[in-house]
Design a protein around this nucleic acid. Structure first.
Lengths: 213, 213
DNA sequence: CGAACTATCATTGTTGAACAATCAGTGCCA
DNA sequence: TGGCACTGATTGTTCAACAATGATAGTTCG
């Protein structure tokens, strides 16, 4: 749920997340401005925003390129997730509106699994964890997670084995939701810790298997 | 330790944090650009960055103004701090380089207290907590804290009773550091929890005492 | 032959002026 | 008094130009 306005920034953001520009791709001001039908100055403003969000990297006098998260980034992203998500879940109330979003995300993941639409499964997984963070009712933590989730999507794009990446976690999401509702936040938080460790290991495994750097 | 480059953005950032523009002040593009000796376009790019960092608020077609954190913001900021700082301290190693920074911050706070230089005490306090977050070795959490700390400074500016705000925490910082070194991370984390609750109460108290909204 | 140097070129950084789009305040009118 | 068009100011955006920087390629010299 990124800020609805800022049309250009969000359009560019979506394109990047959707993989239209592969991670690491250099984004030329002139050609991209022409492609998007905006002026260089306007495009540069959008660049500054996305750069601050970590979606693109800006090297002075060398332009911007789509971020291409490495192993260190994935490790850091999961470290931050472990700081935030379990604590949010532990303190979250089962009556919180975000629980509805959690449930919907689980169901959407299940139907995506059935249709073997891994892309949709990945989106549902992210929505599930976004809902967990929303339990904390903290705009600032939500912003952090939004940025982190976007970076993670770029990492997923690099891996390009969506089934192994997303499919295993649909049933885990369902189980986590049930634990949360039936046994309460702290029990679910413990389960989420293991969940995140496994998820990180999955991503890192696919990463190092792909390119050795 | 904000990104060293981006001279204009950082210059503006520092001016805002230093209170040159009071919270809520409207920042006119034309006059400010003239004042800083840059063009409107360049200034707008800096605006986008600072807006993303939460230091200024941007309302479309109505310009930007210096953020003026309210009670809800302070509450949220402390919520986020409680998520991050105690956990970082609990898992931190006494051998981490950031411990040196913690020690230096404590000493700087003590000498500031002696000189009754509350401004310097406030800076030292922030540096202390910044060092705590640095224990986690997480660039993304550090970025979160950097933004949060800047917002908090704006809230402090609004209150304008620096002694009550900063002085009580110098001895607490010293005590917290000793607990961390002598009794370990988890004990220090518990102490920090209470510390943050007290700090939040101090800020909120001064806030509601000042303006009832 | 290879390495260092230099010239060229493309791209980014920044500016200034211009105009459209929108908001805020004013005064008019019913 | 309450709504309404009008006006002025500010922001949003574009364009063209130039300076500053980095990358490339070609050249020269050891």
């Amino acid at each position: 749920m990124p800020d609805a306005d800022d049309t250009l920034t969000n359009a560019l953001r979506r394109r990047i997340i959707d993989g239209e520009f592969a991670p690491g791709t250099r984004l030329s001001e002139i050609s991209l401005a022409e492609k998007l039908g905006v002026s260089r100055n306007t495009l540069r403003e959008a660049f500054r925003v996305l750069s601050e969000q970590g979606l693109i990297e800006h090297v002075p006098h060398r332009g911007v390129s789509v971020a291409s998260p490495g192993v260190a980034d994935v490790v850091d992203i999961y470290r931050a997730r472990r700081y935030v998500e379990p604590a949010a879940l532990a303190a979250g109330s089962p009556l919180h509106p975000a629980v509805t979003a959690m449930r919907e995300a689980v169901e959407q993941g299940e139907s995506g699994l059935e249709a073997r639409d891994w892309r949709s499964v990945g989106t549902a997984n992210m929505a599930f964890h976004d809902a967990i963070v929303a339990l904390a009712d903290s705009p600032r933590l939500e912003r952090l997670f939004r940025d982190i989730a976007a970076e993670l999507r770029l990492a997923f794009l690099e891996i390009d084995n969506p089934e192994a990446l997303h499919a295993p976690f649909v049933t885990r999401n369902r189980a986590l939701l049930e634990t949360f509702l039936e046994q309460g936040g702290p029990a679910a938080a413990a389960e989420l810790q293991d969940y995140l460790v496994l998820s990180e290991r999955t991503v890192l495994g696919a990463f190092t298997r792909l390119r050795h750097d």
